[in-house]
Design a protein around this nucleic acid. Sequence first.
DNA 1: CAGTGAGCGAGCTTCCGCTTGACTT
Length: 783
Amino acid sequence: MAKNLVIVESPAKAKTIERFLGKDFTVKSSFGHVRDLSKKQLGVDIEKGFKPNYVVADDKKKIISELKKLAKDAETVWLATDEDREGEAISWHLFETLNLDEAKTKRIVFHEITKTAIDDAIKNFRSIDLNLVDAQQARRVLDRLVGFELSPVLWRKVKPALSAGRVQSVAVRLIVDKEEEIKAFKIVPFFRITADFRVVQNGKSTELKAELPSRFSTKEKALDFLNKCIGAEYTVHAIETKPTQKSPAPPFTTSTLQQEASRKLGFSVSKTMQVAQQLYESGKITYMRTDSVNLSNLALGMAKKEIIYQFGEDFYQFRKYTTKTKGAQEAHEAIRPTFLDQHTIDGTADQKRLYSLIWKRTIASQMSNAKLEKTNVNITISTTKEQFVAKGEVLIFEGFLKVYLESTDEDNADERSGVLPPLKVGQNLPLIKSDATERFTQPPSRYSEASLVKKLEELGIGRPSTYAPTISTIQKREYVAKGEREGVLRDYILITLKNDKISENTKQEKTGQIKGKLIPTDIGNVVNKFLMKHFINIMDFNFTASVEKEFDEIALGQKSWNKMIDAFYGPFHKQVEDTIEKSEKFSGEKLLGKEPSTGKNIYVKIGRFGPIAQIGETDSDEKPRFAALKKNQSLDDITLEEALELFNFPRTIGTYEEEELVVSIGRFGPYVRHKSKFFSLPKTDDPATVAEDRAIEIIEDKRQKDREKTIQKFDENEDVQVLKGRWGAYISIGKNNYKIPKGTDPEKLTLQECLKIAEEAGDKTKKPGGTRKKATKPFKSNK
DNA sequence: CAGTGAGCGAGCTTCCGCTTGACTT
């Protein structure tokens, strides 16, 4: 039995550390937090100074009992969780849950995973910092109180099953605000003038591209300018060069890795984290959830060696980066390759690409600046005072650019710069042509998943471990959606001056297309409006920052956590009660107009199941009629005509096999019903116009697919089928599905065997994660 | 991956941060 038990948070880390520590040490992992507030109840006793009720989750019971046993037999238990607020709390929870003996428990932290660093840590043990633990408890309790008091307000006033919280609600607000900004933005056209000149040098001819710095607000002014240019001479007036430098970006944190993987590799935030996790578990990179840009001494040494070996002394420059982000806790290093001499790795294509990105970024961060020479050439026009300007950029020394350049979110496709041909002052430049192109001012761009993470990080909201889950929560709640909009064609004017003649053309370009950007839904808009009206304090971008300041004071022992929570909870709870009591139901209801045939009012609003249109009054004797909005419609811009159309369903469009064909719109979109079976309409079909022959086609398609799916059918019992599904063959009986035991040939199963398998699988009434089927209604005995 | 296909009167729903599996029928 080992004399020492070391507990860290991650199993991959445990494995690495165990190698350094020798046989007297057993290293185990807690797999993150081991206890939490109970899931179903509030879990906080408000009467008793907000005493938290912690429980060990079911999936943590096994690891706790294992650790308990190991701790009992060990001489010393070393709590080596991360050196931050959460890490300290994990140590404390372990101490409490495992009933550790204070005399034989030591708290240590690793700053680097090397033999000397670990030996160092062991020498510098301390006890658990209870102030820091209290700061974590305050954080935990505050989040629980906010989330579990706010969400039920939404259930009552807006729609069931919604949620609100310190982080997610502000994330939604950012997206809603951005959309408002875009809506308020006025697109203004203007004209941009470019010119192409011919430069002849030693009999070789090249082009020089230049632009007029000033823009024209109207077509008339642009035309006026071009007219003046007719017959003009163009002369190089001045050439000005100045040296500039570019520095590399710091090594990756979780947030910057997500941004770059999104821009350069097109990964979603969650995909980046999944692939990074795989790299981490196979020992190829350091920990991927971090807010630190710091590199360990070991890494710095490796980088230096690698850069000098690969590129030479000139390319190396020692750099120390410091974190600027608010509330960073820096318990880990930056994300970097474990071994910097490994330029590539074995693995999946995604793993290779992400690894390569991390390798380049890390190496580049310790490389010298790139040196550039920027050149501005002024070109005078003989007929007017205006001057064209040509811009060039020449790379003098590559430096870090040899390896890596960070991308930006904005695409500056219009920029005209590159290598300029050799020019002399006073040189005459013949004009090839000059264009006046109509351009348009650009509204702010919507957030992508990654740029939202960037913004949240700037505001100090959320942590590296929660960025990806937060993004998925606000989409799961249907507050925001990733937009897919085709865009529309827009006309623009192009006026060209060539050979002293002016011609005008109208051209077209695509604008307004959205791909994967975050857009608020109707529900998101309505919930945001509600929260902004009643809980502006929680929605404030500085709310997190200000409570973080108090958590810091608690961590320093200057404040008691219960008092801090008490001071917050009093007014907050009153706010909640006032809102429940005084505010009306909040559905974002909007009067669209009247139904022509009856004169009844027609409204749109958020209903029990999402956005709906309603004809008639809710509080009248006659029940109003409802219809769900289509997926791509919104409360904001639906027209009266579109709303009325929704009530044209169900629509009988013909007959097939002597049964009616009915088109309608259901929970999952438009469908055709035939012989009480449902057939989804593909996105490309419009339910308002789909006709009999097309419906039959859809039905036959679906039948064909079903046939391909069916492995076996039994005439004696039509309920029983052997089908081919995502995970291979399975047995379907009525509405239940059953797994086929390994080694059984699904094609040879008999009806009896199928029924037997189903019976042995037994009743699967309890399914973790909630059943789809409605539970049998319990008999209500009283009231 | 495909399937799902109501009713606005129960039920249940929810937070943020740590960390990985288990494994869908």
